[in-house]
C-alpha cells in the first residue's frame, strides 16, 4: 500500500463535497506513504468533473468517459476502479461512505483481496502503517483499525469528516480507453425524486422534522421557512419518511443520510438510536420537543420543551430579524 486512489462519485457532471475532502486528504496520505495520489472519474460528464477537481492536490486524474457507467448497475464502476488499482499499483482506495460507495467497497474488497475500514473519520499513517478511525455502534465507541500491509486497502470515508483544501500545481488529466467488457444489469429506469442528498449533506444548517409534525404540510409551511431563514435545508426522521410526508431522500439516520452540519435542529423527533447515528456528529444540536424525557434531550446541546407548532414560527421570525 503505497499510493492513494480516490474514487470520485459523479452524476451528470456534478460531484459532492466529500470528493474535495477526499482529494485533499489523499495528498497527505500519499506523501506520508511516499506514493502518488490519483483520482478516478467515470462516466459521461467525467470530463466536466475533472475540470472541477483539477485545482486539488492530486498527481493525476484518470478519466473514462464510458456511458455504460450510467446505463448499467455498478458493474462498470467496479471494473474500472479495479483496472485503475492494478494500473496504479498497491494502494489505499478512498470511497465515499454512501449507499453506492458501500456496495463498491464490498465488491472491490473481494476482487483485490483487500481489507476495508468503514465510515472512516480520520486516517493516521505512521511508518507506512495505515490506521483508520471510525465511530461504531451508533457513535458509542470509536475504533482504531489497521489495514494490514498488503497490496490494497479500502477506506469508506464519512462525508464532512475531512477538510477540503484546494492547492497544488494542478493534476494531469489522463484519458483512458473505454473497455469492451459487457455488463449484465441494465438500468431500465432511473428516477430522481426531489433535489435530495447534495443539498442535505452539504447544508450548513439542517432543520429536521419527525413524527411530531403530524403530516406533510408542516414540512413546507413551517420547517422550510425556518430552514430558509438560516440558509439551510429540511431533513426528516424515518417515521416522517415512512408516513409518506417527505421523500426518503430527506431521511437522516442509519438507513438514511449521515449529516454533520454546524447546526442541527430536531423538531418533533424523539432521538432514537437509528436517527442519532446519522446526526450525532453535528456541531450544535438543538431539540424542540413536547416531552422533556425524550431521548434526544440526553444528547442535544439545548432542548426546549414545548409545542413545535407554537415555537418554530416565532423562531423563524426572530432568526429572520436577527439576520437583517
Amino acid at each position: 500500500m503505497k499510493n492513494v486512489i480516490v474514487y470520485v462519485e459523479q452524476k451528470k457532471g456534478a460531484t459532492r463535497k466529500v470528493t474535495f475532502e477526499m482529494l485533499s486528504e489523499a495528498r497527505k496520505i500519499a506523501d506520508a506513504l511516499g506514493g502518488r495520489a490519483v483520482a478516478v472519474v467515470l462516466g459521461s460528464g467525467a470530463a466536466q468533473v475533472a475540470e472541477q477537481i483539477k485545482g486539488y492536490p492530486v498527481d493525476a486524474i484518470q478519466l473514462v468517459e464510458d456511458p455504460a457507467v450510467e446505463q448499467f448497475l455498478l458493474d462498470p464502476i467496479v471494473h474500472y476502479v479495479e483496472l485503475a488499482a492494478k494500473n496504479v499499483g498497491p494502494s489505499l482506495i478512498l470511497i465515499p461512505n454512501t449507499l453506492s460507495g458501500r456496495d463498491l467497497a464490498g465488491r472491490l474488497l473481494a476482487r483485490l483481496n483487500a481489507g476495508v475500514a468503514a465510515d472512516v473519520t480520520e486516517i493516521v499513517v505512521t511508518n507506512g502503517r495505515v490506521e483508520c478511525v471510525s465511530p461504531k455502534l451508533g457513535g458509542a465507541l470509536v475504533t482504531h483499525c489497521v489495514l494490514r500491509a498488503g497490496d490494497y486497502g479500502i477506506a469508506t470515508i464519512r462525508p464532512g469528516a475531512f477538510t477540503a483544501a484546494p492547492g497544488g500545481s494542478g493534476a494531469q488529466i489522463e484519458r483512458h480507453d473505454v473497455s469492451n467488457a459487457t455488463y449484465a444489469l441494465a438500468i431500465e429506469r432511473d428516477v430522481e425524486e426531489g433535489s435530495g442528498e447534495m443539498a442535505l449533506e452539504e447544508a450548513p444548517v439542517v432543520i429536521a422534522g419527525g413524527r411530531g409534525m403530524g403530516g406533510a404540510e408542516p414540512f413546507t409551511s413551517m420547517l422550510k421557512p425556518l430552514a430558509d431563514a438560516f440558509g439551510g435545508a429540511v431533513g426528516a426522521s424515518r417515521a416522517a419518511a415512512d408516513a409518506g410526508w417527505v421523500s426518503y431522500s430527506l431521511q437522516i439516520g442509519q438507513t438514511g443520510k449521515t449529516v454533520s452540519p454546524p447546526l442541527y435542529i430536531a423538531v418533533g423527533i424523539s432521538g432514537a438510536i437509528q436517527h442519532k447515528v446519522g446526526m450525532r456528529a453535528s456541531g450544535t444540536i438543538v431539540a424542540i420537543n413536547k416531552d422533556a424525557s425524550a431521548p434526544i434531550a440526553e444528547f442535544a446541546d439545548l432542548t426546549v420543551v414545548g409545542d413545535a407548532f407554537a415555537i418554530v414560527p416565532e423562531l423563524t421570525k426572530l432568526v429572520t430579524a436577527a439576520k437583517q
Binding site: 490506521e131 458509542a140 470509536v142 475504533t143 482504531h144 444540536i285 439545548l302 432542548t303
Partner: peptide
C-alpha cells in the same frame, strides 16, 4: 486484512441544557 487496535468512547459532549419556557 484488518486488525482492530483499540476502541474508546468518543470525547464526551458537554451536558446539554433542558429548558421549559413560559411561552412559545
Amino acid at each position: 486484512k484488518t486488525e482492530l487496535l483499540s476502541f474508546a468512547p468518543p470525547p464526551a459532549r458537554g451536558a446539554g441544557k433542558i429548558v421549559t419556557p413560559e411561552d412559545p
